[in-house]
Design a protein around this nucleic acid. Structure first.
Lengths: 191, 191
DNA sequence: ACCTGAACACCGTTCAAGT
DNA sequence: ACCTGAACACCGTTCAAGT
């Protein structure tokens, strides 16, 4: 029998992601990933293409970790659940997460998350043109906040303040996708 | 008289920013900046510290370009004007702009822009605790959108769609900082 | 004070070679 | 098919040396 290959794509991505989580994106070099796998740098190229493709693979990995919420929840609760889970993913992988802001949701895993949001927004009877725009703005807000947080923009604030900011963002998000209807909006308080 | 130095900090930053604008952040290497200035890489260190400090300098440069709006404008118009100008700065310097999401507004130029927003929000009688939070969320939304745009996340969309998205964001921003008051909010249209 | 030259430990990537 | 070894053109950064 032919001897089993030492490497495969999944293993290379595992090693690269571990390196990124432990020591930052700068630690993800072909040399370092190879060393961690007990192999020479050139052995990686067959499995992950080149360095840029390796980073693309890491982004896919992160998106694959995002859980879609149970359909039993109301659509508003589902959006909030996805926002929270996306943020948690950022916390687990702070070095790789900022890359999400740099590429369109073109891969399968990216489409999976985005389509879940689109589907949820469509359920509430939003026009299809507005659905797409709303998804982009909501995703941008959640990604922008989380990237800021994991990249260090909020490093001078205690975690409690950052958490409160995010809760405020979620409240705004609810109000945004759920425009005040008669009897349920903020204006009702002043009736 | 002693001969004039070949280099100064401003000149080094000029060269580095030009390189970033023309060929991306990856083109900003100590070697390339030095070559552009007709000097060896080591000559730069005296003027800009090291590579990380050089990038900090570029961020300062970008923030310094952001114009503060005339005080004659209403506070809502001032916020919108600052958002637009921040986005324009991103368009001029797409390679450097994403770095804004990675550091707190700790430098003088960063504080200048942030304080202008804080001051504007305070003018409308917002409580000081809420002012700070609102500033963070508004800045995050505008930065997150612009970084997405200049980093390529929206590259599959025509510019007209991206522009419309931003206008929508500005409308939301207005509604966010200017909560509907009796007679002026959206509800007034249905009176 | 300011810049250079040589050097060091790294990078990503290629190519031909081994098994 | 899969991995290695040698090599190339780069990186950032230090150090001692020149003026």
């Amino acid at each position: 029998m032919g001897r089993r290959p030492l490497l495969d794509r999944a293993g290379v991505l595992d090693a690269a992601l571990a390196l990124a989580d432990e020591s930052g994106l700068g630690a993800v070099t072909m040399h370092a990933v190879a060393t961690r796998l007990g192999v020479t740098p050139m052995a990686l190229y067959r499995h992950v293409g080149d360095k840029a493709a390796l980073l693309d693979g890491l982004v896919e990995r992160l998106l694959g970790e995002v859980e879609l919420p149970p359909v039993e929840l109301t659509w508003a609760d589902r959006l909030v659940a996805m926002a929270r889970d996306l943020r948690r993913t950022g916390h687990r992988h702070p070095a790789v997460f900022p890359l999400l802001l740099a590429r369109p949701a073109a891969t399968d895993e990216a489409a999976r998350v985005r389509d879940a949001v689109l589907h949820t927004l469509a359920e509430m009877g939003m026009e299809s043109e507005e659905v797409a725009q709303t998804e982009r703005l909501v995703s941008t807000a959640v990604l922008g906040f989380t990237v800021s947080e994991v990249s260090g923009r909020f490093r001078n604030h205690p975690q409690s303040v950052i958490d409160a900011d995010f809760e405020r963002l979620l409240t705004l998000l609810r109000g945004f996708v759920e425009p005040p209807s008669p009897g349920s909006g903020p204006a009702a308080q002043f009736g």
